[in-house]
């Protein structure tokens, strides 16, 4: 790790006045790392990038001690506020969340390791950079780092964990498996910058490579995620999340899915189905959602929705096997969510 200056911010106002750059910009090949100042929360992703020598900021602003951002607050019908510094472990343990947002607590408890969950924050998790092996390797200056090539889509390249949808420009999947569930619940992120506060649906906060391959979201310089708001689910909502990896102990998702369903009189009235590790952003499976509306939830309808989930997939050389996996886990998650 390079040497850097350390500023321990004590308020959001100070933090957003430190002339910080989003990490995505600090990592560009032509960026001047010696002048970049970045934010760090739990540090799991920041230190990983720095140890791999793909990020070398001159100054780090620690936001771990900002006040009030580490609470989970139920605001009644307005929803539930999750402060940006809430750790994954806090989310995992929260009884109310477990009751009302089961898919989220499932996602959190299957993310990373217990030790990582104790340190990693919600804001940092949403902001983590992709785990494409080429992107994280200092020897490869790929498109995402401001280079001219995508190494993952060359013949023979290592892309078995990459995207099967929306993968034509850059096929790195988003690393936040928690965002899969957050998007399914219609979460909104609150962003605070020097000029004030804005709120954006998380789904729209993420940016596809076609819009800008060099970043995964639309955070601005000096801007912090301060809060994530989860709308209150309607009565009769059921949800489930399944993460599929090659290993159960902990593993990056090969495929994950969050399903949030509303049912009335035995029929599905609203469905939110989001695929993780399928595309460069958490992806709503609109065709799968449409396949369920107006239908009862059963093996047959769930299977049909599972098949529909990856409609239009364009697998790469080594990842076509993800298609049937998505079909299976979407089906299973729908059936579980429908049990409520």
């Amino acid at each position: 790790m390079n040497a850097f200056q350390w500023t321990d911010a004590t308020s959001v106002k100070q933090a957003t006045g430190q002339n910080t750059t989003p990490v995505a910009d600090a990592m560009l090949v032509n960026a001047k790392p010696e002048s970049a100042t970045i934010f760090k929360a739990g540090g799991v992703d920041v230190l990983d990038l720095m140890k791999e020598h793909v990020l070398a900021p001159a100054r780090i602003v620690g936001i771990g001690n900002l006040p009030k951002l580490d609470a989970i607050r139920n605001a009644g019908k307005d929803g539930t506020h999750l402060g940006a510094l809430v750790t994954l472990a806090q989310l995992e343990r929260d009884g109310d969340l477990h009751k009302s947002y089961r898919a989220l607590t499932e996602a959190v408890s299957h993310a990373a390791t217990p030790q990582v969950r104790n340190a990693a924050t919600l804001g940092g998790n949403i902001m983590q950079r992709p785990h494409c092996w080429y992107f994280r390797n200092e020897n490869f200056k790929c498109l995402k780092k401001g280079g001219t090539v995508c190494f993952a889509n060359q013949p023979g390249a290592e892309n078995k964990y990459h995207a099967i949808l929306g993968n034509q420009t850059c096929s790195a999947v988003h690393g936040s498996s928690i965002s899969t569930a957050l998007v399914a619940f219609g979460a909104q992120v609150e962003l605070t910058g020097p000029q004030g506060v804005r709120r954006v649906p998380l789904e729209q906060f993420f940016v596809t490579p076609e819009k800008d391959v060099k970043r995964e979201n639309s955070i601005q310089p000096n801007e912090l995620i301060t809060d994530v708001l989860l709308p209150t689910p309607a009565a009769g909502t059921g949800s489930w999340y399944i993460k599929f990896g090659e290993r159960e102990s902990y593993d990056w998702a090969l495929a994950d899915v969050a399903v949030v369903l509303e049912q009335q009189n035995g029929r599905c009235t609203k469905a939110s189905i989001v695929l993780g590790a399928a595309a460069p952003v958490p992806l709503r499976a609109a065709a799968a959602e449409a396949a369920l509306i107006g239908k009862p939830i059963n093996e047959e309808t769930a299977r049909a929705a599972g098949q529909a989930a990856t409609t239009g997939a364009t697998p790469l050389e080594h990842n076509a096997y993800k298609v049937p996996i998505f079909a299976a886990i979407v089906k299973r998650a729908i059936l579980k969510a429908g049990e409520v």
Binding site: Y134, N137, F151, A157, E158, R247, E248, S249, D251
Partner: peptide
């Protein structure tokens, strides 16, 4: 689980770290 992934085009080992080179854990 275990597999060394060498990039065929450039000869680098792409999964040299333990979150990438997978070995059995407690749940397995």
């Amino acid at each position: 689980y275990e597999n060394r992934h060498m990039d065929r085009n450039y000869g680098h080992m792409m999964n040299a770290n333990l979150d990438q080179y997978k070995i059995l854990g407690s749940r397995e």
